[in-house]
């Protein structure tokens, strides 16, 4: 379930914590597994539980507490846009509406071609750069006015067409 690469990355995290506190690495372990698989299936959570040595339900607790973990298949690119007040005051609402229109989906939905999932985010600690969004949990994009949004969607569409992004499981269904 966990590729050698993911295991290597988890091992590096494990080294940061006391030997009897392996559990501390569970958040990174889940994130790395998600980088590779796109989402956290029951099997993956189970594998992480075994690898770390903690009860599976405790892994499940963690995976559902932190919002960036995907518990369902997502599009190749998960785009999370902050709509909180400071961002809203600097154009985030319009940006979000534009994304919805451009992608033809609402929040927590995936485009029928499985390329995009759109999410509403909470404060990312970058309000000065509003509107801000994050692509696949890792890439933050700042000052996302309409033109930049369009450019980003184009860029990601092309990348998705090349099979880039996270493994696509998107079937157009809900993605929450």
């Amino acid at each position: 379930m966990l590729s050698p690469e993911v295991q290597r990355r988890i091992d590096r995290e494990l080294a940061k914590y006391p030997a009897d506190q392996r559990r501390s690495a569970v958040m990174s372990a889940l994130a790395f597994a998600q980088d590779e698989h796109g989402w956290l299936s029951t099997d993956i959570m189970d594998a992480v539980a075994r690898y770390i040595g903690m009860p599976p339900v405790a892994v499940y607790e963690v995976a559902t507490f932190y919002t960036m973990y995907n518990l369902r298949p997502q599009g190749r690119f998960k785009v999370t846009i902050c709509t909180n007040l400071p961002c809203a005051l600097s154009g985030a609402t319009e940006a979000a509406e534009h994304l919805k229109a451009r992608l033809g989906i609402g929040f927590n939905e995936t485009t029928p071609d499985g390329r995009f999932t759109l999410k509403e985010g909470e404060c990312m600690g970058a309000c000065g750069d509003a509107p801000v969004l994050i692509v696949n949990d890792r890439r933050m994009c700042s000052w996302m006015k309409i033109e930049k949004l369009d450019a980003l969607v184009d860029e990601l569409s092309q990348a998705a067409a090349r099979g880039e992004g996270r493994p696509g499981h998107g079937s157009g269904g809900p993605a929450k």
Binding site: P55, V57, A58, Y60, E61, T64, F65
Partner: peptide, 10 residues
């Protein structure tokens, strides 16, 4: 001595 129930979500 075994965690079989947990709390998910928040």
């Amino acid at each position: 001595g075994i965690m079989e129930l947990g709390m998910i979500g928040r």
